[in-house]
Nucleic acid binder design. Structure first.
Lengths: 195, 195
DNA sequence: TGAATTACCGACCGATGGGTTGGTAAAACA
DNA sequence: TGTTTTACCAACCCATCGGTCGGTAATTCA
């Protein structure tokens, strides 16, 4: 069953959801279409399961971060870092989630969950701004969107083979918080490994 | 003809390229499918034209930036800023370009041009690193990808109504180069309006 | 061993989609 | 005015797709 989902998601990502037929999925698994329908209720269910895999990972990380007792700024750093790790770990599922744009029930659900996650990030950015941890001359909503725009763009090029995701996560955090400019005097934000 | 392309691209973006039928496009224009085929050779041509609109804008900006006689760092800032402006100006075309992932001839062409643009950015990042203008502890290719990952994410939420694109472009440049951290002493990189 | 469950398949169905054909009405041009 | 070009359309073609149906082989379980 997991094999079915994995194969489907891989095909969805390489050829596009619409362009992938249930026949394609079945063929990849070495079974016929009828047999495939014996295992899954339909194409949309495959999409729904994939979206859930991605969304669950993201919200789990948001939940963990929320429960940590530290500054909002540090929690924001943790959220970014952990999100990169989730993206790397569930790459194919998150890729599919981020490409959803249509109008079916499942797709609308996916978009709603993404907006929900966005709201969490925006709130955290606002908190961090309020405590003076990050710049206030950029609208919180805009900052949150650009920040996760950068994070999410990973799905376009990151491939698991290319080294540990932790290294990448650190890079993303550093770039997001300190920018591209020469790191004259990198301010160590508390020294808690990586954040 | 421009009206045909505009209508098609809008539909492609809202419902997805595959999910949009030529009948849908025709209906939106208030003509029949046969008449639509009298104006365009096929669905792929519409995609090709849209992709060209986006790609041409991006490469034009890269060309202009390349011809400016200043530091690589400042040119990189200009490229980011101008890219945001192109994205805002040709939003629907660039949106479509960035969503292309399939395997047809046109889609492969689009991906190739995107990679080409990527190479230009990476090269500029390397130059800027070499002259000491930006941090060197991040791989140039990775930095370039994350940088334009952020820029490109605009297509997911930016809507023209929301104020001048110049303001947004400045925000993106600031965030990309100085990061989210509190702007203790914003280093004015030369004072050339916005960069 | 016999019954029930599970995995599997070939053939089929209705709908949709990209694209074509063969033609008419209206401009543009001479 | 006659002719060519342009804009337009209804009907049709064929491939593909999501999904169903009726049935068979293998497996599980009692």
């Amino acid at each position: 069953m997991d094999a079915v989902l994995a194969a489907a998601v891989r095909l969805f990502n390489t050829h596009g959801y619409d362009a992938t037929s249930m026949f394609d999925v079945a063929e990849t698994l070495g079974i016929t279409k009828s047999t495939l329908y014996h295992h899954v209720s339909g194409k949309e269910q495959l999409l729904a399961m994939a979206v859930d895999q991605a969304v669950d990972g993201l919200f789990e990380t948001a939940r963990v971060v929320r429960s940590v007792d530290t500054t909002a700024t540090l929690r924001l750093r943790m959220l970014v870092r952990n999100s990169v790790l989730v993206l790397a770990e569930r790459l194919e599922y998150v890729t599919l989630l981020l490409r959803v744009h249509g109008n079916t029930k499942v797709e609308k659900y996916a978009l709603a969950r993404r907006r929900e996650f966005d709201a969490v990030v925006t709130e955290l950015v606002e908190e961090a701004q309020a405590e003076g941890g990050i710049r206030t001359d950029v609208d919180a909503r805009t900052a949150a969107r650009l920040l996760f725009g950068m994070v999410n763009s990973l799905v376009e090029w990151y491939r698991p083979a290319r080294g540990q995701p932790e290294v990448l996560a650190d890079t993303v955090v550093r770039l997001a918080f300190d920018g591209l400019r020469t790191t004259d005097s990198t301010p160590d934000q508390g020294g808690q490994r990586g954040y």
